[in-house]
Design a protein around this nucleic acid. Structure first.
Lengths: 126, 126
DNA sequence: CCGGATCCTTGCCGATACTG
DNA sequence: CAGTATCGGCAAGGATCCGG
């Protein structure tokens, strides 16, 4: 995907458009904070501060930034409760849920190959 | 995953170690160049320059850097043919192949939701 | 509690040049 | 052809303050 080369022919124009869009989305999604947010959101709906606590090491800024991006792409839904103090909750949309399934795959892969990888790293020192 | 909080109890020490390792690996893998390399490598084995051509927009430096990282983690195998000019080929290991399957899922997701996302982005301008 | 804005530092990444 | 090293610009990301 997203790596093909197109000719200059006009009928490829929309294909090239879709391709560059796909690439852009891919770049948005394929960053560690975005993936961790989706994964944390999992089934439940969480508040901003809950996400902040759940995801070790994420800064206030990175969290808001990625939440906006995910909202823009329609992966999460943001609902503001008009109370004081403010209460803002985030939840996965259907698209977000679908994405989460594949991220789960990534997490399972990581755990399954932890040993392999650690061993490989030691071998690599030579 | 990788987001749990542990108590200070000693028996959690190895769990915490595995968790931080998982997080580290996750951070390595969850970047767009690494994912695109794995995806491009797919079934076949490719040379350095072939990968460079295949992956639109990647620089010489980023390619070598990520290839080293993936080799270190045991996801790809690097074989040097002692000829001139040098011929270096890269291929996925079993772990790499397994990872590729989940990345395929990510790519499929992207294409399937292209429309949703584009629509969502337009809605977001308000 | 949430989020935007601002400043300031860090390190990513591209360009270039040089070896085997 | 493949890889390493160095340098420099620029953008990512942290800390902090303020405003709703």
């Amino acid at each position: 995907m997203v790596t093909k080369q197109f000719s200059g022919s006009p009928e490829d124009a929309d294909l090239r458009r879709a391709d560059s869009l796909a690439r852009e989305i891919f770049s948005d999604i394929a960053n560690k904070w975005a993936l961790l947010i989706i994964e944390s959101l999992g089934g439940h709906t969480l508040r901003f501060s809950e996400l902040r606590n759940e995801i070790e090491g994420i800064s206030h800024k990175m969290l808001t930034q990625n939440l906006r991006m995910l909202e823009r792409n329609g992966l999460i839904e943001r609902t503001v409760h008009p109370v004081v103090p403010p209460r803002v909750e985030y939840t996965l949309t259907e698209a977000g849920q679908a994405l989460r399934v594949t991220i789960d795959g990534l997490c399972n892969w990581t755990h399954h190959y932890l040993g392999h990888i650690e061993a490989s790293r030691h071998r690599f020192e030579a």
